[in-house]
């Protein structure tokens, strides 16, 4: 058992707990970014350098930027009031789930690996050859995401009456948007 991998796994779980229990959203988002960075190191250590690069650049980078921008755009005066019971019950549930998890996973993965080996000689051949249809799906998903965001931020031009109402609301100072 590799001790460094175990330390990385413990760090991963620790950052996940911090991301869940930090009240400050910005700190929670940064914990998530650190979690991604630790996961990237772990992936690299498990012979998966391409996945590690994607995890580090896209998830730790791009998704953190998305989170931080959303947090900056949604500054609210009163934070959402969370109930207290999840914080107190969490350790109990975690230990309970951990014991079940330990028993199930040890039983499932105690057999030696089947060892089929990589079918192709390189990652490029696998991605562009065997999984080439996945790439089409990825392109569709990217366009779906882009058009989804565009559709959600679409705004119709204001009429003269609506502009007047918006001005009045601005002067009154009680409407946010």
């Amino acid at each position: 058992m590799d001790i460094i991998n175990l330390i990385l796994l413990i760090m991963l779980a620790g950052f996940a707990c911090l991301a869940v229990f930090f009240k400050d959203l910005l700190r929670a988002a940064l914990s998530l970014a650190f979690m991604s960075a630790v996961l990237a190191v772990l992936l690299y250590r498990m012979d998966s350098p391409y996945a590690a690069v994607f995890e580090l650049s896209v998830v730790a980078g791009l998704i953190t930027v998305l989170f931080v921008s959303t947090i900056a755009l949604t500054k609210e005066e009163d934070a959402v009031r969370e109930s207290r019971w999840p914080l107190y019950l969490f350790p109990l549930f975690l230990v309970l789930f951990g014991i079940i998890d330990l028993l199930v996973m040890k039983g499932l993965f105690s057999n030696p690996p089947a060892g089929y080996g990589n079918a192709e000689r390189s990652f490029g051949a696998t991605l562009w050859g065997i999984r080439s249809l996945d790439l089409l799906g990825q392109i569709a998903v990217i366009f779906g995401g882009v058009f989804g965001v565009l559709a959600l931020f679409r705004e119709k031009p204001l009429t003269a009456q609506e502009k007047l109402e918006a001005e009045k609301a601005k002067e009154g100072g009680h409407k946010l948007w």
């Binding site: 992936l43 498990m46 012979d47 998966s48 391409y50 996945a51 994607f54 995890e55 690996p113 089947a114 060892g115 089929y116 080996g117 990589n118 079918a119 192709e120 390189s122 990652f123 051949a125 696998t126 991605l127 065997i130 999984r131 996945d134 799906g137 990825q138």
Partner: peptide, 13 residues
Amino acid sequence: RGETFFSQSLVIT
């Protein structure tokens, strides 16, 4: 399973 290329392509997707 020793199929890291395959799993990496799935992860990237």
